[in-house]
Simulated assay, not measured.
Amino acid sequence: MAENSNRFQLGQAVDCQEVDVANKKEAYVMTDSQVKVTISPDGMGTEGTDVENISRETEKNKVFRESAEIQVVQTFESLDAAAQAITDFEESTTSNFIVLEKQKNFGNEGFRPSSKVSIHWHGPQVRNVCLLEYTGVPFIIAGRKVLCCHLGQDLCLPQKKRYIQATDQKKTADHGYIKSRKIIQSTKKMDCPAKIYVYHIIRYPDFQITRNTAWHKRMVSKKMNQEITKDNKVLHSYVVQFPKLSEHGNHPIAGELQVKRFWYHVRTQPVRRIYGPLQNLRNVFQRHTRPLILHGYWDNKTQS
């Protein structure tokens, strides 16, 4: 191989067959940052795409990667805005989250708390991150909603175990004929720990304090518990904590499958180069001999 075989120029198509094992990592870095390599439809070669669009897309992915590793906490004034932000987050990270937990009064803006409700001045703290800092305005938590990755924990394991036990008992009983099939993977769940936390916050600006002392907080909280059942001015908001991209576990994320498929084509391309023409020759032979077999050509030859 030539000395510059592992050096790629901007806009140059890369021949996967000339990339040896020692330079695969470098080849991937170059193709990801400069040239977007795709397998041609016939599976025999590679071709480059528009360099200008690729550079713009690469820069966008780089910014997204850097921002995805930041613990993002956002506050929204309505539940619809929070739901739209979660949808946008799923689309941008190519992920999917499902509801794991939802408390009773979450999203109920007509909620009337009792006099025994807990008054907060900061917090809550989730995964060592304080969602709301001290502003002098007291608030209560109306409810919480937790969304987990769709490849998270399997919550139906007890039901599955009971079903398996009941099926085994029916098989061992008399005249127990139950159709069964071999299940290689009983669930898609991969115990992914990634979660989205949404808190419904109700603020009371009429009870705002100007001095951050324990005595002022205690006195205002006591007064607030006595008057919280009355008609007070309230402000509803929803605080959302998004997970980092690295918090996903036990499954590929954000285009890792495309990278694995790319290297699968790179490793198997020499095999396809050798056996591809043989496969085409086999198809041509079958196409020309099938009419002879259907019309009994070989039978006539055998009888004669």
Results as ranks from 00 to 15, higher is better:
I201W: 06
A27S: 11
P205M: 04
Q71K: 01
Q84M: 04
G45P: 05
M190T: 07
L245K: 05
Y264T: 09
T87K: 07
Y204E: 09
I253D: 03
K223W: 15
N96I: 07
P124F: 11
R261W: 11
D191E: 15
I253T: 11
I209F: 12
V240Q: 05
Q71A: 04
Q279W: 02
P158T: 00
L79K: 07
P205G: 02
S237I: 01
Y204A: 08
P193L: 04
G176D: 10
V146D: 13
F111G: 02
R218T: 13
F76N: 08
R282F: 05
K189C: 15
Q159S: 13
P41S: 09
G11F: 12
G176T: 05
T268K: 03
A142N: 14
F262P: 00
V51P: 09
K25D: 04
S221Y: 11
R181M: 10
V198M: 08
L132A: 09
S246L: 03
T167D: 01
T229Y: 15
Q12D: 09
L157H: 07
P124D: 14
K36V: 05
Q84G: 04
T210E: 14
K170R: 15
H175A: 06
P277Y: 00
L151V: 00
I119E: 08
S114A: 13
Q241P: 08
R112Q: 12
Q226K: 08
R144G: 10
V29T: 10
I86L: 06
D206Q: 13
F242E: 06
K182G: 04
F64P: 00
G48V: 12
V37E: 00
I98P: 00
Q169A: 14
A142P: 15
S237H: 05
F106K: 02
M219T: 10
Q17L: 13
W121S: 15
D42S: 07
T302V: 13
A22P: 02
V72Y: 10
N250C: 11
V239M: 03
E77M: 05
I183F: 11
Q241K: 12
Q125C: 08
Q303I: 06
H122N: 15
I183E: 08
T46Q: 04
K36S: 13
N105W: 12
T93K: 04
L281R: 06
G11H: 07
G123Y: 04
Q226Y: 11
